[in-house]
C-alpha cells in the first residue's frame, strides 16, 4: 500500500501542477496547451497505464487488508475509546478511500472520458475542437458539481494527512531526525495540493477566472 500510495502521491503533483494553469486566467490557453500535450505525448500515455495499474492495485491491496483485518477481530468491543490512543483519520482510511473511489468514478467519467472520446470517436474528428477548459468552466457552474468536488477534496485531505507519513513507516523509514521532517512535508504537501484542487471548482463557480 505504501509503494502504490507514494506513486499516486507523485501523480497528484503533476495533476495539480497542470490544472493550476487555469489560475493564469488567460482564457484557458495555457491549460489547454498543456492538457493537449499531456493527452498526446506517448510517454505520458504509457505512464497513464501505470497510473491506472497503481490505482487498481492500491484499491485491491486496501480491500485485502480490510478483509483480513475484519477477520482478525470477530467479536467487537462493547465499549471502545479509540480516540484516546489514535487519530480518527488514521482509523478511517478505508472509509475515506471508498469516498475517494466514488468521487474518482464521477471525476473520471466527466473529464477523463470526454477527453478520450474526443481523441478516438469518429477517428479523432473532434480532437482539434475539444476544449477541456471550456468543459471545466461549464461543469463548475453547477453548484452540486462543486459540492461533490469539495467533498472529494476533503476526503483526499484526510486520506493524505495519514497516508503520506504512513507510507514511509511501512517502507521502514522511521528516523529520529527525518520522521518529523517527513511529517511536516506531508502536511505541507497535503495542504497545498488540496487547497489548489478545492480552489479550482470554487474559482470557476465564483467567477474569479473567466
Amino acid at each position: 500500500m505504501g509503494l502504490t500510495g507514494l506513486f499516486l502521491i507523485s501523480f497528484l503533483i503533476i495533476h495539480v501542477g497542470v490544472n493550476s494553469c487555469i489560475f493564469l486566467n488567460d482564457g484557458g490557453e495555457t491549460f489547454n496547451a498543456v492538457a493537449h500535450f499531456m493527452s498526446h505525448n506517448w510517454i505520458l500515455r504509457f505512464l497513464e497505464i501505470g497510473l491506472f495499474a497503481a490505482l487498481i492495485l492500491h484499491i485491491v491491496q486496501g480491500l485485502v487488508v480490510w478483509k483480513q483485518n475484519s477477520a482478525a477481530r470477530p467479536v467487537k468491543y462493547a465499549v471502545n475509546a479509540p480516540g484516546a490512543n489514535s487519530k480518527w483519520y488514521s482509523r478511517s482510511m478505508g472509509l475515506l478511500g471508498t469516498l475517494l473511489l466514488f468521487f474518482l468514478i464521477i471525476h473520471v467519467s466527466k473529464f477523463f472520458l470526454d477527453t478520450k472520446i474526443a481523441l478516438y470517436a469518429d477517428g479523432g474528428a473532434h480532437d482539434a475542437s475539444h476544449n477541456l477548459y471550456a468543459e471545466m468552466k461549464a461543469e463548475f457552474q453547477k453548484w452540486w458539481v462543486v459540492v461533490i468536488y469539495i467533498i472529494g477534496v476533503i476526503s483526499l485531505f484526510w486520506h493524505l494527512i495519514h497516508g503520506f507519513q504512513s507510507a514511509f513507516q511501512t517502507l521502514g523509514i522511521n528516523h529520529k531526525r527525518y520522521t518529523p521532517l517527513i511529517k511536516i512535508i506531508g502536511i505541507g504537501y497535503t495542504v497545498i495540493v488540496c487547497l489548489l484542487f478545492a480552489l479550482m471548482p470554487v474559482a470557476f463557480y465564483a467567477g474569479w477566472i473567466n
Binding site: P82, S90, M93
Partner: peptide, 8 residues
C-alpha cells in the same frame, strides 16, 4: 491483522 500505522 495488518498494521495500518494508527500507532494505537
Amino acid at each position: 491483522g495488518n498494521c495500518t500505522n494508527t500507532y494505537a
